[in-house]
Simulated scan of single mutants.
Amino acid sequence: MKKLLFKSLIISNFLMLLIFNVFATEEKSLLWKISGNGLEQESYLFGTIHLICQDQFKMDARILQAFESSEKIIMEIDISDPNVMMDMQRLSLNKDFKNIKDEFDPDHQVAVDEFLKAQLGVGLDQLGVMKPFILSTMIMTKMLPCEEISGYEMFFIEKAKELGKGMGGLETAEFQIGLFDQIPIKTQLDDIGKMVIEGNSMEEFQTLVDAYLNEDIDLLFELITVNEMFQQNGDILLNFRNETWIPQIEEAIKEQATFIAVGSGHLSSELGVIQLLRNAGYTVEPVR
């Protein structure tokens, strides 16, 4: 389980924060049923959060029933595939093992280095060869107010293996990591530095978790769009991806009953998956 959790943590940070363009659904739910438009069977769309304390992990009968009634599970990337995880680990390092330590602002560099040494025993001299989103994930994981951390992707993967269900992904590891390569490294490093120095990251994260547990996907938008990086890069991180997912989702749900699990930030907005599926002619309804 620890090995599977580590795999989830590698990608959790940038998966969790891909949100832009607020669009109120006025309907609270993490689970949505997809039907109509000639479908012979119902499929389901579920919004995940990629890091959460184990004691706050939300799972109930309606989610399990939707999952068990589906023949296949599709996630953003198929992290059950060992080749995908090998790609993730390989691509998580800076090109030519470049150390980005000196690209931090001086005060941010000191704070981040001290935090990493205190929490992990090694600092930026060693960990600076990793891409910013990996450093950010490491730091956020250590900031969480719990020892046991859970993730929905790994839960669904284990459940799918147990029940013998097929699995697939909407994107490749190269594509997802390439998203952050399009964002200025200075922007990413400033975000990390502020997370450590300002010290309010866990309060903000808990507010996000509360909104998630209340299944308020619109409030999730409001909370996350205050982040400057996502205000500037929302089209890269969210909108374009949602649009490219729709044909793949359509192909999957026409073939068989499918359970689609993606970050909850992808559900709402006028360019979110829910509305895009509705625009394509499907009935998408909340399951409560």
Rank of each mutant, 00 (worst) to 15 (best):
E270Y: 15
E174M: 07
S201N: 11
A211D: 05
F133W: 09
I246N: 01
N227L: 15
Q65E: 15
L5E: 09
L15R: 10
S136H: 14
I157Q: 04
R278I: 10
F20I: 13
Y152V: 07
E285F: 07
G178Q: 06
L91F: 02
M229L: 15
E76L: 01
K95S: 10
I34M: 05
K33S: 13
I52V: 12
A252N: 05
W245G: 00
M167V: 12
I49R: 03
D113F: 02
F97P: 09
Q65M: 14
Q232N: 15
A61R: 11
G178V: 04
L5Q: 08
K98G: 08
K131I: 04
I74H: 08
T258C: 07
T172Y: 04
L17P: 00
L4D: 11
Q182I: 09
E250G: 07
I253N: 07
M16V: 05
G38Q: 03
L64C: 02
L45S: 02
K58P: 14
S70R: 13
L93G: 05
Y282P: 07
G123S: 05
N239Y: 14
R90N: 13
F259H: 01
S201R: 11
K33W: 11
K161Q: 13
N239G: 09
S268Q: 11
D107R: 08
S201C: 11
V209L: 09
I177S: 00
A173Q: 08
E171P: 08
F20C: 13
E204L: 14
A66N: 05
G47H: 03
F259R: 01
F175V: 04
L45Q: 01
P106V: 12
E174G: 11
M143N: 03
L237H: 00
L271V: 15
I34L: 09
V226I: 15
G128D: 05
F240C: 10
T137N: 11
G168W: 02
A160G: 04
Y212K: 03
V84L: 00
E243I: 12
F57W: 03
L163R: 09
V112C: 06
H108A: 14
M229Q: 10
L51I: 12
L17Y: 11
I197E: 08
S269Y: 09
S43L: 03
I63H: 02
L18R: 10
S70C: 14
F67I: 01
M130Q: 06
L39R: 04
L208V: 08
Q248T: 08
Q206H: 09
E270F: 15
F23A: 14
F46E: 04
F175E: 13
E174C: 06
E251I: 09
T48P: 06
N214A: 15
G121C: 04
E204M: 15
E27K: 08
V110W: 10
A111C: 06
V110E: 14
L127Q: 02
K142F: 08
I139A: 01
A261V: 06
K131Q: 10
T172Q: 04
L15S: 12
Q231G: 12
V226R: 11
I183W: 00
A257E: 09
